[in-house]
Write a protein that binds this DNA or RNA. Structure first.
Length: 950
RNA sequence: GCCGAAGUGGCGGAAUGGUAGACGCGCACGACUCAAAAUCGUGUACCAAUGGUGUGUGGGUUCGAGUCCCACCUUCGGUACCA
């Protein structure tokens, strides 16, 4: 490489990404080029990336996709004159560091610190414009102090339904003391007893505290949790997939444990309604709506035939109540024992034992199978006094509604299946119902029959009539039911935020606010204690004020990520989680970029916390992120080769090319993953190991050194290719550092954008990266050729200006709609055109350079310096579009006959439709197609096309 | 099953209802070279080829449909006995 030294500046004359990128990385750091201030006259713009968990594996090429997109947009907004906040940090509490600690004894803080350093250097390698002075780490005490503080606020508040928001628990205490809770409408536990003021006042301090737990927004309770014995921890519903843990795939069982819980259900309605306000992907909003699962219906009480108890059910189809022919309880329903008659006790107990023994996975697999048992008991339909037999069956879930359903076989397929199986009657209730013998008909059309007080009515008339009837008699009411459960907030783990509470007389109290953070204590081992308590139980002398037991569970992964965007606004504040000035200035996130896999986890919990903080007047917006875009996953290609499964005692190993498996009938094959680097044309049907690849494989897996390889007639061992996760175990992880070392960071950034639309998932390959690399080299050569500076100050031609302004228009529009792949194409077009025109004019190249600055961040900065600028190109102004250069003198009109394109003819741009029509009809090329038929109609769209109809 | 998204060359992908396949890869040919690589240039949807056919399939709306409407098929993502 050649340098020219002058006034201590280093000029680089040839496109050498490594030198250019090194140079500017250090200059930007030195000059704090990306430092952001709170305030100023420019409008604010906040661009947030979902922060990563710093895993030991480091970044792979999939991670930066969203970061590159957001960085481009951040830089674009800066050039457009915005004060942009674009920070990065780490979600640094989590299980992998703890597993590592269990294995090695190394404190998770140390391993986490190392991982963060690695992430940081990988991120810096990619030229991001993060303001690193604002970095946050959820595992640092300065940060989790405020996570704990927010937790305490949740404990100190309850949700008042009349006010529609969270209010201090003191307000509730005052009302309880003066009027009891009969008129208090608040989000609370289902079974909260009704008490009078005197009841309350007669309670002891301890009883009052226990009573208040029914209302607090976070509270400990005995509840069934997803317990994962292999991991020794509790998982939330969204961390469990098909009865297995999402991480690691370990079995999960239901277990009753004392757990902290978050009353997110209090915000269910607001979380649904808030979706209207935000510009998030439709599918993501839909997922949140489904997860919350709001259903409008009614609760109805069915009195028991014997005794004065009533079974309460929830139904969304109260209009079908005259079609009820039986009742089904969940096998776990608490009344089952009591209801069961002696004649049926054996059968019921057998059924319950059987259902309890079945794993979640088995249950899911056998959904179609009808099972159940009759209790021998009956209840009474309140509307017509009909005797209704009570069954138990595992298609009714204990966790939803009341754990009991009124079964209407004529309208509900599951009930129909059950009724058919147990030969129970099926009563049609609408005259529009059909084919009752083949299945249920859930229609709401028609008029009711066999239906007492609603006979002859329509659906719309029947529902209010029935609800009124129920309410008048105290037998039911209109009700809204949610699928959403309160969120379990405890983890029996070490590496998380300690819950800032202690226990006195089995009642939880908060650690004094001034004593926060409650720092994670050291322990000798990161395992549960001998008595089964969480690891924190091992901490020596760890007691509040030396005498009270601290809460020993820690917070879940989503705690720290539920408010972090505020910390970036004011990262070093010691008086609050964010100052009022900072949050008043930055307000909310304008653009949030991250993966759609967080749709019902992080993105729902964080909205919940934000609504709560809003209620307390601590933040200005109900919804914290105006717009959200999902970046698609970059997947890996997984390559396998086929190994014949050896017989017992057979030591030979034979691999067979995928196209030759048919030659081995009756043999079974094992799929052995191969390092993708050995595979030619990986990710395709023709992917294979050639002779060299087979050698590489043998060297890599010495245990197969003696194996035989049966190749096809081309000498290839064809592989099986799959698209899947990038993961160590598939040997397909591509580290961005390697790509950067070969092509440079600018090329890597542009290539990832060029792969396709940002939200689309795609497998990683480097097939066309050479095209991007070539483009950057060609672009450089518009400025330098063979070390010679070519840029001149000549006046540009009209044609050159048209090239420039076409690019300005296209890129400006496409960046705004996050279509970065077409921006890259537009740059390539401009580069190619200018190359053909041999244009090296400053007036053209300089604006183009500015537009490319968000993409090729280093290269453009270097050329900007060569152009004589002293400031950074990243503080320049986005070029203005001047439409006059886009006006054409001549327009080529496609001429169609009957919609079929026949020819394309240039006309002056000023030609009027009538002239065009006349000229077109006279053309020989057109006449040929008219074949003398009469012209019915001519459509002329000025500037677009001409269509002749005959 | 339900909800959502998407189906376009050999491949990644472009196209406010108006010339389908921009841009890139790959491929072919050519230049440079003793040769190869790299680089540069030209071409590249398909076919029985003055023409015809083409955006998952079948219909429809329109002068005109990849784009809008209806039905279906396939793929991907989410969810799953939610009463």
């Amino acid at each position: 490489m050649r340098y020219r030294y002058s006034s201590q500046k280093q000029y680089i004359m040839e496109y050498s990404p490594r030198d250019i990128e090194q140079k500017w990385k250090s200059i930007w750091e030195q000059k704090q080029t990306y430092r952001t201030e709170n305030g100023g006259s420019r409008p604010k713009y906040y661009i947030l990336d979902m922060f990563p968990y710093p895993s030991g594996a480091g970044l792979h090429v999939g991670h930066p996709l969203g970061y590159i997109a957001s960085d481009i947009f951040a830089r674009y907004k800066r050039l457009k004159g915005f004060n942009v906040l674009h920070p990065m940090g780490y979600d640094s509490f989590g299980l992998p560091a703890e597993q590592y600690a269990i294995q090695t004894g190394i404190h998770p803080a140390i391993a986490t610190h190392e991982n963060i350093d690695r992430y940081r250097s990988q991120l810096e390698n990619l030229g991001f414009s993060f303001d690193w002075s604002r970095e946050v780490r959820t595992s640092s005490p300065e940060y989790y102090r405020w996570t704990q503080w927010i937790f305490q606020q949740l404990f100190k508040h309850y949700f008042d339904k009349e006010a529609g928001k969270a209010l201090p628990i003191d307000t509730l205490v005052q009302r309880l003391a003066s009027e009891g809770n009969a008129r208090i409408q608040a989000a609370c536990e289902e079974n909260t007893p009704l008490i009078s003021a005197s009841d309350w006042n007669a309670m002891s301090e301890r009883e009052q505290q226990l009573f208040l737990l029914n209302y607090r927004l976070t509270f400990p309770e005995e509840s069934y949790v997803n317990w994962c014995p292999a991991m020794g921890t509790v998982l939330s519903n969204d961390e469990v997939k098909d009865g297995l843990s999402e991480r690691g795939g370990h079995p999960v069982e239901r277990k009753l444990m004392a757990q902290w819980s978050m009353r997110i259900t209090a915000y269910a309605d607001r979380l649904i309604d808030g979706l209207e306000e935000i510009d998030w992907p439709l599918s993501l909003k839909e997922q949140q709506r489904n997860w919350i699962g709001r259903s409008q219906g009614a609760s109805v009480k069915f009195p028991l035939e014997n005794g004065d108890k009533q079974i309460e059910v929830f139904t969304t189809r109260v209009d079908t109540i005259y079609g009820v022919t039986f009742m089904v309880l969940a096998p776990e329903h608490e009344w089952v024992d009591e209801l069961t008659t002696d004649a049926h006790r054996e059968e019921i107990n057998a059924y319950r034992t059987w259902t309890a023994s079945r794993s979640e996975v088995e249950r899911m697999a056998e959904v179609k199978k009808v099972t159940g048992a009759f209790t021998g008991a009956y209840c009474v339909n309140p509307f017509n006094g009909a005797k209704v037999p009570i069954y138990i069956a595992d298609y009714v879930l204990a966790g939803y509604g009341t754990g009991a359903v009124m079964a209407v076989p004529s309208g509900d397929q599951r009930d129909w299946n059950f009724a058919t199986h147990f030969q129970l009657p099926i009563i049609p209730i609408l005259d529009a119902q059909q084919d009752m013998d083949k299945g249920a008909d859930p229609t709401k059309e028609g008029r009711y029959i066999n239906s007492g007080i609603i006979n002859g009515m329509s659906y719309e008339e029947a529902v209010p009539a029935l609800i009124q009837w129920l309410e008048e008699r105290g037998l039911g009411k209109g009700k809204v039911q949610y699928r959403l459960r309160n969120a379990v907030f405890s983890r029996q783990r070490y590496w998380g935020e300690p819950v800032p509470a202690y226990w006195k007389d089995d009642v939880p109290y908060l650690v004094d606010e001034n004593e926060l953070p409650l720092v994670l204590p050291d322990v000798d081992k990161y395992l549960p204690t001998e008595t089964g308590e969480p690891p924190l139980g091992r901490a020596e002398n760890w007691k509040y004020q030396g005498k009270y037991e601290y809460e020993l569970s820690t917070m879940p992964g989503w705690a720290g990520s539920s408010w972090y965007w505020y910390r970036y606004m004011d990262p070093h504040n010691e008086k609050g989680f964010v100052s009022k000035e900072a949050v008043d200035y930055w307000q909310d996130v304008d653009l949030y970029v991250g993966g759609s896999e967080h749709a019902v986890g992080h993105l729902l919990y964080s909205r919940f916390w934000n609504h709560f903080l809003y209620d307390l007047g601590l933040v200005p917006k109900r919804e914290y992120a105006k717009k959200l875009i999902n970046q698609g996953m970059i997947q890996g290609v997984i390559e396998f080769i086929y190994l014949i499964k050896p017989e017992d005692g057979d030591d030979s190993r034979t691999f067979v090319s995928a196209d030759l498996l048919g030659n081995y009938p009756g043999k079974e094959f094992a799929l052995i993953p191969v390092h993708v680097d050995f595979v030619k044309d990986y990710g395709r049907d023709e992917s294979h190991l050639d002779a060299a690849g087979i050698e590489q494989f043998k060297e890599w897996r010495p245990d197969f050194k003696a194996a035989a390889f049966v190749t096809n007639d081309k000498g290839q061992l064809l592989t099986k290719s799959e698209v899947g996760k990038m993961s160590k175990r598939y040997f397909n992880v591509v580290n961005p550092d390697d790509v950067v070392a070969r092509y440079g960071a600018d090329c890597f950034r542009i290539y990832e954008m060029f792969l396709g639309p940002i939200e689309q998932a795609k497998p990683w390959n480097t097939n066309s990266i050479s095209g991007v690399s070539r483009f950057l080299n060609n672009f450089w050569r518009l400025f330098f050729r063979d070390g010679k500076w070519l840029v001149n100050d000549e006046t540009p031609t009209k044609e050159e200006l048209k090239v420039l302004h076409t690019a300005i228009k296209k890129v400006s529009e496409d960046v705004e709609r996050f279509s970065f792949n077409t921006c890259v194409a537009a740059f390539m077009v401009a580069g190619n055109d200018l190359n053909k025109l041999q244009c090296h004019k400053r007036a053209i190249l300089e604006p183009l350079l500015v537009m490319m600055a968000p993409f090729a961040v280093h290269l453009t900065e270097e050329l900007w310096e060569h152009l004589g600028h002293t400031g950074s190109i990243h503080h320049a102004d986005w070029p203005e579009l001047d439409e006059q250069w886009l006006v054409e003198d001549e327009i080529t009109y496609p001429i169609s006959v009957n919609g079929k394109l026949r020819l394309a003819v240039p006309f002056p741009a000023s030609a009027q439709p009538a002239e065009l029509e006349k000229a077109a009809l006279e053309m020989e090329g057109v006449q040929r197609w008219l074949e003398g038929k009469p012209v019915r109609k001519v459509i002329v769209v000025p500037g677009r096309m001409i269509n002749i109809v005959v």
